[in-house]
Computed example of a mutant assay.
Amino acid sequence: MRFIGFLAAFTAAMTAVPAVAQQKTIPSTHAEEAPDTTDKANLWLLDLSTGGRVTILLRPDVAPKMVERIKTLTRRHFYDGTIFHRVTDRPLPIAQGGDPTGTGTGDSDLPDVPAEFNYLPHARGAVAAARTEDENSANSQFYIMFRPALSLDKRYTVFGRVIKGMEYVDEIHRGEPPKDPSRILHAYIASDNPPPYQPGPATVNPALGDPGDITLPAKPAAAPASKPAQKPKK
């Protein structure tokens, strides 16, 4: 799985920094124009089982390869029916999904995406690519930040941020894995003229089987050697 291999370093970094300093926003000298939040070609829509639609502004200006991967998989309906398999508040405040197997060790059948580390912070609502210890192993998995964790900056590829519907992200069921996992009912790119949000069963992802029958291990002890123990996957 993607992320656990990084937990020790993350915890050490957080305890070494005073609490007040942890809450400060790192100043940026990077001059940029405000991203266009009305550009439907770069709005990723996730209809969640928690009750509504989440709108994520994609950032091809800083992570073009990962954004292209998200668009490709979304248009293949890859994410429809997939669960959030790793959802924690501490020490990592994340909701992680995008694995077609629901275990944290799976990927799409496409090649891995190289690292596109950039200046975007791991702020609340940031969306980033999960990976193994190999920096160039991002693929289909991603995570959304519940709270800031700036110690992750420039270690993982941030490729977007929630701009609407964060309340539905906050309601994603917790656990590693959750006993009753929340799922993506449908994923869309806004420019593809998707239908309005509709609660109910997702289109079944063939890799997952019937959404009502998915069975997950109690807690993965370790992933295969090629995919080190849990951490954000690319």
Score class of each variant (00 low, 15 high):
residue 62 V to F: 01
residue 25 T to I: 15
residue 91 P to D: 15
residue 22 Q to D: 05
residue 187 A to R: 00
residue 25 T to L: 12
residue 204 V to W: 13
residue 176 E to Y: 08
residue 87 V to H: 13
residue 232 P to H: 00
residue 130 A to F: 09
residue 38 T to S: 10
residue 98 G to F: 10
residue 12 A to L: 14
residue 83 I to P: 05
residue 82 T to S: 00
residue 214 I to R: 11
residue 68 E to N: 09
residue 118 N to T: 01
residue 196 P to L: 02
residue 170 D to F: 07
residue 172 I to F: 09
residue 73 L to G: 01
residue 213 D to A: 14
residue 156 Y to Q: 09
residue 50 T to K: 08
residue 57 L to W: 00
residue 119 Y to F: 14
residue 104 G to W: 07
residue 135 E to L: 06
residue 5 G to P: 09
residue 38 T to A: 13
residue 149 A to I: 08
residue 122 H to C: 02
residue 19 A to H: 04
residue 214 I to T: 14
residue 232 P to F: 02
residue 127 V to R: 05
residue 30 H to R: 13
residue 27 P to T: 09
residue 45 L to F: 03
residue 32 E to P: 00
residue 216 L to H: 09
residue 53 R to S: 06
residue 47 D to E: 03
residue 205 N to S: 03
residue 165 G to L: 02
residue 106 G to N: 13
residue 1 M to I: 07
residue 21 A to N: 10
residue 87 V to Y: 11
residue 79 Y to N: 02
residue 49 S to Y: 10
residue 206 P to F: 06
residue 113 V to W: 01
residue 220 P to V: 15
residue 126 A to S: 11
residue 208 L to C: 07
residue 12 A to P: 08
residue 28 S to K: 06
residue 186 H to R: 11
residue 51 G to F: 01
residue 94 I to F: 13
residue 174 R to F: 13
residue 35 P to Q: 04
residue 125 G to D: 08
residue 199 P to I: 13
residue 16 A to T: 12
residue 91 P to I: 14
residue 34 A to F: 00
residue 213 D to Q: 14
residue 153 D to S: 10
residue 118 N to Q: 05
residue 108 S to P: 07
residue 183 R to P: 07
residue 198 Q to M: 15
residue 120 L to Q: 01
residue 59 R to W: 06
residue 206 P to Y: 10
residue 123 A to H: 12
residue 146 F to P: 02
residue 133 E to H: 09
residue 83 I to C: 07
residue 152 L to S: 04
residue 129 A to F: 00
residue 67 V to R: 00
residue 52 G to Q: 02
residue 34 A to D: 08
residue 104 G to F: 00
residue 163 I to V: 13
